[in-house]
Design a protein around this nucleic acid. Sequence first.
DNA 1: GTTATTGCCTAAAGGCATTAGGAACGAGGG
DNA 2: CCCTCGTTCCTAATGCCTTTAGGCAATAAC
Lengths: 202, 202
Amino acid sequence: MVARAGLSRDRIVEAAAELADEVGFAQVTLSAVARRFGVQVASLYAHVDGADDLRAGVACLALEELADTAGGALAGRSGRDALVVLGDVYRDYAAAHPGRYDAARFPLDPATAAASAGPRLAELTRAVLRGYHLGRADETHAVRLLGSVFHGFTSLEAAGGFSHSRPASSTSWARILDGLDVLLRSWAADAPDHSHARRTTR
Amino acid sequence: MVARAGLSRDRIVEAAAELADEVGFAQVTLSAVARRFGVQVASLYAHVDGADDLRAGVACLALEELADTAGGALAGRSGRDALVVLGDVYRDYAAAHPGRYDAARFPLDPATAAASAGPRLAELTRAVLRGYHLGRADETHAVRLLGSVFHGFTSLEAAGGFSHSRPASSTSWARILDGLDVLLRSWAADAPDHSHARRTTR
DNA sequence: GTTATTGCCTAAAGGCATTAGGAACGAGGG
DNA sequence: CCCTCGTTCCTAATGCCTTTAGGCAATAAC
């Protein structure tokens, strides 16, 4: 008699993601999602394996969205351009979807982490760095540096750390991306690219 | 008849901080703290104004400890030295007290934030940067850059982001601090220090 | 049109947060 | 000595969230 709500894991996770953006990732709760669907809480257990699984689902969704937009935005770009674009993808995503962005840092167990879009994201930043022709070790250091700056800046910005003081955080962001570019260039000078050297070995 | 537990706000917050380091900041709960003291939950309300106030207390404690150790470690140092020491203070604190470190990023309402040791910490990083003789604007950008890198790196490291791959994260950390030093030097070259220029104006 | 599956429900138990009000402990004045 | 009085801690009750178990009804297969 009563119309079915038409639940599915995807629809539930999607609703949870919207909820996260509205009220914060920490407030994402099975009860709230059930209310949103006009459904009893227990019904969700048919599709989701409890509250943590729901949060993990939102995390995976966020990682996927991030990787997708990064992949699209990065197409055809390299060097400084690519660096700026990648940074902006993170920052813009965090601004547009604060709850989802928070979710992206939810600790996943190794198996789901490996199956998530996380590795794809890492690969994308490695691709950006390839334009700087760093040495093997420096490339890893650089991946970590970029991850730290992107994550650190966006999360501090989201937490309001920069909001009540001049200059505008966007100005700092631009200056910081600039700085990273010159920093990576200096690393490139330190350690010439081994993979492309000896091209003329004959 | 029953011996009193001798509760006080400080003792409760301290216990909550220990708990945070043991089981994670998110798991810091009035119930758990009450259990630790062998006391009923409601008894805590005489000293603490609810769960959020308890968390805020832990946050303030963490900020204070951070600012204290940073202040001590920074004494008599400047330039690259000071930069490395400040970074290490953050990283070491996060490693030794993961729960407290997490707490330090708990959003405080403006009043308590202003009264906390947060501003003192910001002042300390500004002091470190004074050694690089940046322009006014660049100094702010640099404060944000350092905050982003320190926070981003330590939190990614704590989340296990770097743990399962070579090279060791300590190596990256050293390389990154080095990089920040050269980056700040390049900014100094861009915009000479106005406060000390024109010394010879006559 | 009957059967099997699945989707959603009710019911129940357990944990955490919060408030209200009561009892026992400690200290100080009579 | 004892009597208040403030403080410390308690019991009790309410409400929200999670999780599990078991039941009925809508959909899909035949």
